[in-house]
Simulated assay, not measured.
Amino acid sequence: MRLQTLIIRYTAFAVIATLMNLFSQRVILLMGQSLPYFVSAVAVGTLVGLVVKYLLDKRWIFFDHKQGFRHEGRQFTLYAVMGIFTTAIFWGFETAFWLIWQSHLLREIGAMMGLAIGYVVKYHLDKRYVFSPRA
């Protein structure tokens, strides 16, 4: 696959997963606005976004067609763990920009930078540890 195609697909899938995450959160928050609903919304949204991104990446980025409950379970677990690591990069940049400049604009710029760096790192981690032929 050409690099340009990879970047377009990967970016599109990140946007799709984010929209599915936010949509899932809104559905839950229609039921209520209290803390338990908020926590449930974030948890469900995160899981929905993670599953959607995993399925899209598996099929259209890494062209992995292996199946089976054990294989899928192991692979999804590795995918989720790589996501935890790269989320820390995103949150770290966002937090650092906020602490340094105390500006919402710069916090959001830091968040975008962290997200972009996190997704590049995640792609390489997934390629090496999640979807590699030896994984």
Rank of each mutant, 00 (worst) to 15 (best):
Y10S: 01
Y10D: 01
F13P: 02
A14N: 06
A14T: 03
V15G: 10
V15S: 07
V15I: 14
I16T: 11
A17H: 04
T18M: 15
L19N: 07
L19F: 14
L19Y: 05
N21R: 06
N21L: 12
N21M: 10
F23G: 09
F23M: 10
F23D: 02
S24A: 13
R26S: 13
V27T: 09
L29A: 05
L29C: 04
L30P: 01
M31V: 00
M31F: 12
Q33M: 12
Q33H: 14
Q33V: 10
Q33K: 11
S34H: 08
S34K: 07
F38Y: 14
V42L: 15
A43H: 09
A43Q: 07
V44R: 06
G45H: 02
L47P: 08
G49T: 03
L50A: 13
V51Y: 08
V52W: 08
V52H: 09
K53R: 09
Y54H: 05
L55T: 02
D57E: 15
D57T: 01
K58C: 08
K58N: 10
K58I: 00
R59Y: 15
R59V: 07
R59L: 14
I61V: 14
F62K: 00
F63M: 12
F63C: 12
D64K: 02
D64G: 04
K66Y: 09
K66D: 13
Q67W: 08
H71I: 11
H71E: 13
E72F: 13
G73Q: 05
R74E: 12
Q75D: 04
L78S: 10
Y79D: 02
Y79P: 01
A80S: 11
V81M: 14
V81P: 10
V81S: 10
G83P: 11
I84F: 13
I84K: 07
T86D: 05
T87N: 09
I89E: 12
F90M: 13
F90W: 11
G92Y: 00
F93R: 02
F93I: 02
F93S: 08
A96C: 13
F97N: 06
W98P: 08
L99S: 06
W101C: 08
S103D: 14
S103Q: 04
H104E: 15
H104N: 15
L105R: 00
L105N: 05
L105E: 10
L106S: 03
L106P: 00
L106G: 03
R107L: 10
R107T: 07
E108W: 12
E108P: 00
I109D: 11
G110K: 03
G110F: 09
G110H: 04
A111S: 14
A111M: 12
M112F: 15
G114K: 04
G114P: 07
G114W: 04
L115G: 11
A116T: 10
A116M: 11
I117S: 09
I117L: 15
I117F: 12
G118T: 03
G118N: 00
G118M: 02
G118S: 06
Y119G: 01
Y119D: 07
Y119Q: 14
V120T: 03
V120Q: 03
V121D: 03
V121I: 11
Y123M: 02
L125H: 02
L125C: 10
D126V: 04
Y129N: 01
V130R: 01
V130K: 07
V130C: 09
V130E: 07
F131I: 01
F131L: 07
